[in-house]
Simulated scan of single mutants.
Amino acid sequence: MTFHDQQSQIAERLGVAKSFDAAAEAEQRIRFLADYLRASSLQSYVLGISGGVDSLAAGMLAQSAVESLRSQGHEAQFIAVRLPYGTQADEADAQRSLQVIKPDRVVTIDIKPATDAMLEAVRVEGGDLLDTARLNFHLGNIKARQRMIAQYALAGTTRGLVIGTDQAAEALMGFFTKFGDGAADILPLSGLTKRRVRAIATHLGAPDELVFKVPTADLETDAPLRPDEDVYGVTYDEIDDFLEGKDVSEVARQKIIATHYASSHKRALPVALV
């Protein structure tokens, strides 16, 4: 199989379209959210807002979807959730995102007490199993999973569904926590490269300072706001070019493909003996 065949197959599996129009995509994804909530006979969408462009774009789509449903006589609301671990370094960006989205309801839940308690509980009996050199990495994964616990708690009590922010660039690289931010009921950004997520956010009226903010998962306490690209070893432009069928350097190609296949288990359903 040639590189271009492999590149094309991966992009197709991740749902990346060959052409893109921001206005058409935004309309389609708003309709997708509205139709699914109505068909489910549920009444709310819940989404964690981090201050990054992915949750910003997904939040704007969700708010538009529930407003559309209400205009048709359906009961629907969008609940935006702030989930800081104590004090978030880019809290101002998160608050600015909320101002742009204008959600029906904002709920703030500090995940620090639950996260720290869980890590301590693990250390009581299994401390010798933890890689102390990667303790902040392990803590980061607990943070991501605690955030999803909180979102599902809210969804469960409001007859709701949890929105995930997974998009094609992060899916390609496996850059999400399994059963953390990788867990959700619906993914309105699926199949979009990072630049296409930005284009949709811009189309919906988001300001450039939020759209083009340096992306960060901000999970590791010892490296706050560490850029995603530092973790990847390649840039989002290279990842997006790969997904959009464009040429990338040999170094970037090898890094992207190796990371993609090494993270395959994160994109798969649980394995079962049938």
Results as ranks from 00 to 15, higher is better:
V214L: 11
A155T: 10
G51S: 05
E244S: 09
D181V: 06
I186K: 07
D230S: 13
T132S: 13
P227E: 03
F175R: 03
V211M: 10
V81G: 02
P113Q: 12
F212V: 02
F78R: 07
T87A: 14
N136E: 14
Q72F: 01
V46Q: 06
I186E: 06
A268R: 08
A80R: 01
A258L: 10
L42H: 10
G15A: 04
R123L: 14
H138P: 00
E91R: 12
F78G: 05
H265W: 11
A22L: 06
I142P: 12
G140N: 11
G160Y: 00
E27R: 15
D110A: 09
M118V: 12
L139R: 14
I10D: 08
V231L: 14
S264L: 12
K102L: 05
G180W: 08
D90L: 03
L37W: 01
R70Y: 03
G86R: 10
A58K: 03
L47V: 00
Y85K: 14
E209C: 08
M148P: 09
A155L: 11
S40C: 06
E244G: 06
A133S: 15
F175E: 06
L98D: 05
A150I: 08
A201C: 09
P84V: 03
A58W: 03
E250R: 11
L219A: 02
R123Y: 01
A155R: 08
K266L: 13
A114Q: 02
A184G: 10
S68M: 14
R29Y: 00
S71H: 13
H4T: 15
L129Y: 13
S71I: 01
V274E: 13
A11F: 03
Q7F: 01
K213Q: 12
Q72M: 12
R253D: 01
A92D: 13
V271D: 12
L273D: 05
D181I: 11
I111V: 15
K143W: 04
A11M: 10
A155P: 09
T165C: 05
L204P: 06
S19Y: 01
V46L: 11
E209N: 14
T108D: 09
V53M: 06
N141I: 06
D54W: 03
R105I: 11
P227W: 08
A262N: 10
P270H: 09
R267Q: 07
M118A: 14
F3R: 15
H4A: 13
G205A: 04
I200K: 00
L130E: 07
A80H: 00
R105W: 03
L37N: 00
A22C: 04
A169N: 07
R198A: 12
L269M: 12
A199K: 05
G140V: 08
A150T: 03
I101Y: 07
E238Y: 08
L56T: 11
F32W: 07
A58H: 05
F78W: 02
P227I: 07
L61W: 05
G160F: 01
L187F: 14
S263H: 13
A155I: 10
Q99F: 01
A144S: 15
K18I: 07
D54Q: 03
L129F: 13
E170Y: 03
I101R: 00
K213Y: 06
A144W: 04
G233Q: 10
L42V: 03
T193L: 05
D21F: 01
S190I: 10
M60P: 04
E27S: 15
D110S: 07
P224I: 13
A23F: 02
L14Q: 07
E229R: 09
G127R: 09
F212W: 12
D116R: 11
G233I: 09
